[in-house]
Every structure is written in structure tokens, then in C-alpha cells.
Computed example of a mutant assay.
Amino acid sequence: MTEPLRRRRPPAVVARRFAGSAVIFTVLAVVSVATVVPMIWMIFTSLKSPAEYLVNSWFWPRDPQWSAYLTLFTEKNFGRYFLNSTAVTVPAVAAILLIGAMAAYGLVISSRRARDRTLMYFVIGQMIPVTGIIAPLYLMLRGADLINNYAGLILAYIAGAMSFTVFLTYGFFRAVPPEIAEAAAIDGAGRLRTFWSIYLPLGAPGLATVGIFQFLSVWNDILLVILIMQRNELQTLNVAVFQAVGEYGTDVPALFAGLTVAALPVVIVYLLFTRQFVAGLTAGATKG
């Protein structure tokens, strides 16, 4: 017997689907151009001299040069600011992920009543903006002698990120089948061993997603750095770039070179954890 012919879709349905695909493609193309073009322009501008920028601000530099980057690291002390940002971001993100994961695991294994009540506190914490607690935060850190101290800045980041981190990580940990933890308990694994050997590996995509969000938040922060780190030599990279904007004149190529240097670690982190990040977003979209 011959295979029955497939039914043809009505022309109206085909036209509707084609129009929908064309609209989606157009929107994605516009968003991509709006995202990529400013980055390309930033890199091109950083390779120009101030004189060339005045006459050729939008196109490929006629004589590409690295003088703006040399100025940053020889005259503007950007090497120290880069190390300051790294010294704050790496331990802050590591502590946020560790403490947040342990708190989320505690919620998973706790009773329903205690879990619901605790989650409500974390939800309320997400509703409070950082600007609403600036004054008490400064007074607490000053009372503890943590102003102009990286420990104070890192503690502020940990406290500010904990609500979001615990709430999101709990969603990934809750998707871990309880049968796996029960089997580990039967084999003699305690709570801590179950956390390290089961929940952390299975929740790695979610932790990678949270880690990227927190890395972006901490690395790009300006407000808390200005508030807590008041000495110039303790400032981070983004604050140094922000301060490079002069009142009467700005070296635009050097400014854009600083922006490029500040954006480079973000791009590297995203490229390194793209697979885990996409897996985490997919899991969050498909699991309740």
C-alpha cells in the first residue's frame, strides 16, 4: 500500500506562520544590532587617538593604536583598580553561592510550615531596594569599623544578594527527586554529604545561572563601592571608569578603553559558563 499523502496546510495558515516568524526574526535582528553595534563602536573608539576621534567618531580607526590602553595602566592606575574589583568580586560571589546553596538546602529538608514562613522573609527581602537601606547599612558598617575595608563591602554584597540567591536556588534544589536523597540516606550519607554529593552537582546549572547574575551585579556595582570604599586607592574598576568623566573635558578613547577592560571579564565569564547558564534557564522554564 502506498503511504497516504500528507494533508496540505491551508495557504492562510502558512501565510500566518510565515508572518509570525518574520516578525520574530525582525525583532531579534533589531535587538541584536542594538546590542552589538554599541560594543563595536566602543572598541573602535578605544583604538583611536583623541584627535582622530574628533574628526572620525563613528568609523573604523584609520590608524589603530593602543595608546588609550597604555594610558589607563601607566597613568590612570587601572591595573590596581582591576585587582581591587577582582579581590572583591571573586570572594563575594563564592560566599553568596555557598551560603545561598546551604540555606536553600536547609529549606528543602525543613518542615513545610517552617519552609513557607522562611521563604516569606526572603520574598520580602527581594522587595526592599538597596537605596532604601543605605543609611542603616552605612551606620552598621561604620559602627563595626568596616568602612574602607573590603570585608565590609563583601558582607554588604552577601546580605544584599541572599534573598534572590536563596529563592532561585531553592527552586532548582526542589526539582531534585527526593528518592535520590532517600537512597543516599539509606547508604549512610548524612545531611552534609547529601548536600555536597547530590544537591550541589545536580543543581550546578542553577548555581551557574545565579553565579552569573551575581557576578554581573557585584562587578558592575558603583553605589556601594562609593559608599563604603571612600579612599581612592581602594576603588574598583567601574568606579574608576565613572570618575574618568571630567567636568570640562573627557578623553573619550581612554574612557571607552576603560569600558572595554571593565566589560571583558563579564564576557569571559559568560562564555565559560554559557552551557550551564542555558541549562539553568531551560530548567527554570520547564520545572515547577
Rank of each mutant, 00 (worst) to 15 (best):
49 S>W: 09
148 N>A: 06
48 K>Y: 00
254 A>N: 05
176 V>A: 08
70 L>V: 08
156 A>V: 08
176 V>Y: 04
286 T>R: 07
37 V>C: 14
45 T>Y: 01
66 W>M: 13
12 A>P: 11
48 K>W: 01
147 I>Q: 00
283 A>E: 12
160 G>T: 03
42 M>D: 01
158 I>E: 02
238 N>G: 04
98 L>I: 08
267 V>H: 05
64 P>A: 05
109 I>V: 15
41 W>R: 11
194 T>P: 03
220 N>E: 08
256 F>H: 10
39 M>D: 06
1 M>S: 13
278 V>M: 04
276 Q>T: 00
159 A>F: 01
186 I>C: 05
231 R>F: 11
121 Y>P: 13
88 V>I: 14
195 F>D: 04
20 G>P: 08
53 Y>Q: 05
38 P>I: 07
241 V>Y: 07
22 A>N: 10
264 L>G: 08
238 N>M: 07
117 R>D: 11
225 V>T: 10
165 T>D: 02
267 V>Y: 09
96 I>W: 01
88 V>D: 02
110 S>R: 06
257 A>L: 12
202 L>Q: 02
163 S>V: 01
58 W>R: 13
153 L>M: 06
240 A>W: 08
125 G>D: 12
204 A>W: 03
154 I>T: 01
174 R>K: 15
105 Y>M: 04
102 M>E: 07
50 P>T: 00
265 P>Y: 09
132 G>M: 13
277 F>Y: 15
73 F>W: 10
186 I>K: 12
213 F>I: 12
114 A>P: 06
99 I>C: 05
87 A>E: 12
128 I>A: 00
1 M>A: 13
199 Y>W: 08
238 N>Y: 04
174 R>I: 09
230 Q>I: 07
14 V>Y: 01
206 G>E: 00
